[in-house]
Amino acid sequence: MKIELRKFGDILVSRPAGREAYLAMSAYLLKGVDENELIELDFQGVKVMAPSWADEVLTKIALKYKNLKLLNTENSSVRATLKTLEEFSDFKNLNYAGRNKKAN
């Protein structure tokens, strides 16, 4: 299962928008998906991501699905946000492919 985050917008910055995105994902994209299935989160086309939005979406997905892969994380705000989540949210103890290797 691949989720293209740009389909939720290219500027992803608030918690309410993140919550809405996660609910839509849960209803339309992730419904019935096994927790062991590979989930690919594709950041291609995302211009701005902030930790508030990401914490409502990425952390929740990472807590539920065990096999996570992040694609196209080169955008500066995406990298910075992933770094913050790894440091300050429940995202930090999770193992996933595409970890924030290039982050400062």
Partner: peptide, 30 residues
């Protein structure tokens, strides 16, 4: 963001700056 890019700010700075402003502004509402 359109303004920042028009002003020749590097994309990576423009996007980070927008994320920072987004966090602070949304904090006020939250």
């Amino acid at each position: 963001i359109i303004y920042l890019l028009k002003e020749q700010l590097k994309e990576e700075d423009a996007y980070i700056l927008s994320a920072i402003a987004g966090e602070i502004g949304n904090n006020s509402f939250d």
